[in-house]
């Protein structure tokens, strides 16, 4: 058996190492927010992205200098953007249950995030529009207002779910596939105006 002094030194060293490991383990614990992040399903423009709870197909994004509601309860006056309007036409279908909440964000490569405009009544994800019923596709457009120089590697994140609570919900992350040159071209000569029709079921 070792003499008392080396044994005591070994005990102290072991305690210190264990304490350090406890601090490391504690700092690695994910917080509640990270624990319950929505579950992403990645995809691309033009292809159907299966997010298990719903499927979504986004079309080529369009960039405009004005947008307006086409019919419906909106005012119909053309709205000028603070930057540009990014319009992403999309078609969503619920898979199993009716999904009453549809939300979308445009997440840039540098982390800057923009949510859909609340000024258009007809836009998808604004709280208006039909509930997604299983098997019946709904078509419409997500409309974002983005400063020109913030439009970098945009990814459209779409969430459709039963409750308002987004925790652990399904989310489709769709790479809009716009490179630097395309973005420069689109923002330099945006479409004059885009009319947004009300989101509607596609027979």
């Amino acid at each position: 058996m070792a003499s008392p002094l080396p044994r005591r030194a070994l005990t102290v060293a072991t305690c210190l190492v264990l304490l350090a490991l406890i601090f490391v383990a504690q700092s690695l614990l994910p917080g509640e927010t990270d624990d319950t992040e929505p579950i992403p399903f990645a995809g691309e423009v033009g292809t159907e992205v299966d997010a298990e709870q719903f499927t979504v197909t986004a079309s080529e994004p369009r960039v405009a200098a004005a947008v307006q509601d086409d019919g419906g309860f909106g005012s119909g006056t053309p709205l000028k953007p603070h930057g540009v309007w990014v319009v992403v036409p999309a078609r969503l279908t619920a898979q199993e249950a009716p999904l009453g909440t549809v939300e979308a964000q445009l997440v840039m490569g540098d982390g800057y995030t923009y949510s859909v405009t609340s000024w258009l009544f007809n836009g998808l994800g604004t709280g208006s529009g039909p509930t997604l019923s299983p098997g019946i596709a709904v078509g419409g457009a997500f409309v974002f207002e983005v400063p020109k120089d913030r439009l970098v590697d945009p990814v459209l994140q779409v969430s459709a779910r039963e409750s308002l609570d987004a925790r652990l919900s399904a989310r489709a992350d769709i790479d809009l596939g716009l490179d630097k040159d395309e973005i420069a071209e689109l923002t330099a000569s945006p479409e004059e105006s885009i009319s947004i029709p009300a989101a509607a079921q596609i027979p």
Binding site: S75, L79, K80, H82, G83, Y112, T113, Y114, S115, S118, W119, E145, P147, R150
Partner: peptide, 17 residues
């Protein structure tokens, strides 16, 4: 002020208004 009829639901980043 550029669109006083519309309520702003969310404040977006890097957009001085």
């Amino acid at each position: 002020t550029r669109h006083p009829e519309g309520l702003v639901s969310q404040i977006q980043p890097d957009m001085p208004e």
